[in-house]
C-alpha cells in the first residue's frame, strides 16, 4: 500500500477514560492497514509527527486511541468533530497471527492488540484479549465489552494486580501458540519471558521517538539480537512489531 499524506475529517473525538481519548477519522475512500501499523500525525507548529497506533479500521473510519502526555496529544484532545487532522501513513509492519492468540495491552498499548482482536474475530481465529490499567477511571469503557480479562493495579475494576500476573496466568490456562503485547517495556519484557519459558511465539510492539517514519533518519532505532548479531533496527520501518526474543532475548532493548 502506497504511503500518503491525508487530511481527514474527525467524526468523533472523545475522552474514553481519564487521560485516554478515542478519535474517529473519516476515510471515505478507505485506507488499507493491518493491526500493528501506525500513522504519523502532524501537529501544527511542531517539527516531529506523532506516531500513533491504529486501534480499528472499519473501511470508512480509522480509529486511534491516544494518551494525553504532552503538547502534541494535548492539541489532539482539543480538536472537535468536523476539524481535520493531517496524517501520513500507513507505516510499519504488523502482527503475525496464530491459531490460538493471547493478546495483551497495558494502558494506551491496548490500541494495536484491540485492533488485532477485532481482525482475528472476523476470520474466526481464537483470540483472548487481556488489558491492564492503573485504576477504574482510566479504563476506556466503550472498549471494555471486547476485553476478555482485565486488571487494575488498585483492584477498582477487574482483577486486582498487575497485567503481567494476569497474562502469566492465562498463558498457562489458555496455552496459546501466539502472544502479542503492547505496553510499557517492563510489561512486555516480563510477559515475553513467561512466553519464552513455554516456548510460545511472542511479539511486542515497540514505541520510540521518531524522526522520518520511513527508515531514513535512524532516529528511532533500538538494538535487537538478530540470530546472535546485535544490530540496530528502525522501529518505524522494521517495526514497530518485533519478535520478543530479538528485543529482550539479548537483554538490551535500548
Amino acid at each position: 500500500m502506497v504511503q500518503k499524506i491525508y487530511e481527514l475529517k474527525i467524526k468523533n473525538n472523545n475522552r474514553a477514560g481519564s487521560d485516554l481519548y478515542i478519535m474517529d477519522l473519516e476515510t471515505p475512500d478507505g485506507i488499507f492497514s493491518k493491526p500493528g501499523q501506525f500513522i504519523s500525525v502532524l501537529i501544527p507548529h511542531k517539527t516531529l509527527r506523532r506516531p500513533i497506533s491504529i486501534m480499528e479500521n472499519t473501511g470508512s473510519t480509522i480509529r486511534i486511541l491516544y494518551k494525553v502526555r504532552g503538547e502534541g496529544t494535548n492539541y489532539l484532545a482539543g480538536l472537535n468533530a468536523g476539524n481535520y487532522v493531517n496524517f501520513a501513513g500507513v507505516f510499519g509492519n504488523f502482527f503475525k497471527i496464530g491459531e490460538k492468540n493471547l493478546l495483551v495491552g497495558a494502558g494506551v498499548g491496548l490500541a494495536p492488540v484491540y485492533y488485532l482482536k477485532k481482525e482475528l474475530e472476523k476470520i474466526g481465529r481464537d483470540a483472548k484479549l487481556i488489558a491492564g490499567f492503573k485504576t477504574k477511571t482510566e479504563v476506556p469503557r466503550e472498549l471494555s465489552p471486547f476485553i476478555d480479562y482485565m486488571s487494575t493495579d488498585d483492584g477498582s475494576f477487574g482483577e486486582k494486580g498487575s497485567v503481567i500476573d494476569l497474562a502469566e496466568k492465562y498463558i498457562k490456562e489458555f496455552m496459546p501458540d501466539n502472544i502479542c503485547i503492547c505496553g510499557p517495556v517492563i510489561v512486555m519484557e516480563k510477559i515475553s519471558e513467561a512466553a519464552a519459558q513455554e516456548r510460545i511465539q511472542c511479539q511486542v510492539s515497540m514505541e520510540s521517538m521518531m524522526g522520518c517514519s520511513v527508515g531514513a533518519c535512524r532516529g528511532c532505532v533500538i538494538k535487537i539480537n538478530d540470530s546472535g548479531v546485535i544490530r540496530n533496527a528502525a522501529v518505524c520501518k522494521e517495526g514497530p512489531v518485533f519478535d520478543a526474543l530479538k528485543v529482550f532475548g539479548g537483554k538490551s532493548h535500548a
Binding site: 521517538m209 540496530n232 535500548a254
Partner: peptide
Amino acid sequence: REGNFWQRIIETECGMINSIGLE
C-alpha cells in the same frame, strides 16, 4: 557504524536535536 546509543532525537522549540552519530 552503529552510531550513538538511545536517545537519539528530541523535539525542541522550532526544531529538533539529533545525536544519531553517523550510523
